[in-house]
Computed example of a mutant assay.
Amino acid sequence: MSNALRAAYIASVQQHAPERYAAVALAPGLVRAENEAQRWGTTLDSAGISLSSDDGSWTLGMRAAALGCEGQVTALGAAAPEAEGNRVRYGRDDLEEWYVNGPLGLEQGFVLQEAPACAGTKVVAIELDGDWRAELVDEDGDGLGEALSLRDNEARATLRYTDLYVKDAAGKELPAWLSLDQGRVVIHVNDAGAVYPVEIDPLMAIHLGKLWPDFGPIINFGNALSFSGDTALVGARSDDGMSPYSGSAYVFVRSSQGRARAPVRMAEARAARVRSFLRG
């Protein structure tokens, strides 16, 4: 899936989230949004945002801290959040900041109405608050981060800051990447030839990991899928290799922290055994 298509998919799902994902103004300058899919809630005020798990096991704070160019940034002032549906907006003269609460997580966005008055790659710096260890995800090894993995000190939860997509007013995708700098998450945007305003759009979500059995390589794992609430049933056709009609089914259950618990191998049988089971 291309970056543009992935971004459009995320935006569509988040925008059409059910009413229960709506943000609620608790007081002037104080907003709360619950997220049943991610099992967290978000509090937004002039100091930034705070995500906290439903079971109280972790909290993560974030604040847009600075804007500018590499080596030349200016601190951002405070702003009050304004809620409309499941979207919350912070308005500033130099940067608009917004969040959309939905099943895929907390979608974050920044809109630069015009280029900062400095030369070179543009950056937005975000401060993290809490006992979290951030690791840069650089799968292609080019030194430019595609995502961040965040884990609290007790390894109770893992969050992903991912799906970064940047475009200009003409719809052109701009090169963008992530880095870490003294506890700050830094978004870098190469705006050469860009038409302003420019929109920056990453996503924060619980990292569920890959659904994979603990028994080594499995043939055709994922051949069939079924989901119900927090339970996933994953088929593995020809798992035992004894016959083209043999196979297994694995059951995964999401834990309270959002991770997939160890799978249980539910069934393994040859075709004859399956037929006998169905008759019985």
Rank of each mutant, 00 (worst) to 15 (best):
V88M: 06
T162S: 05
L51V: 14
H188W: 03
A260G: 13
A25H: 07
A23Q: 00
V189S: 11
E82R: 04
M1A: 07
G48D: 01
V195W: 06
Q14T: 12
S46R: 15
A269R: 13
R265Q: 05
W212K: 12
G193A: 12
V185W: 12
G171C: 05
A22C: 00
A47M: 00
D191V: 15
S248E: 12
D140T: 04
L278T: 09
L233V: 15
E199G: 00
Y165M: 01
A119H: 11
L136K: 13
R32K: 02
A249W: 02
A236W: 11
V88A: 00
G68R: 03
Y245T: 14
I206W: 07
L128D: 00
A169W: 03
G48N: 04
V166T: 15
H207N: 12
M1P: 09
E82Q: 11
Y9L: 09
S50N: 00
A232Q: 05
M62N: 03
D163A: 04
L136R: 13
P213I: 00
Y245C: 03
A11E: 01
N3H: 12
Q113V: 06
A176T: 09
E146L: 08
Q113E: 13
G68W: 02
E127R: 15
A176D: 11
D45Y: 03
Y21D: 12
N220R: 10
A25N: 09
I49T: 13
K210M: 13
S226T: 12
G229H: 09
A224Y: 05
S12E: 15
R39E: 15
S12I: 02
P103Q: 07
A271K: 14
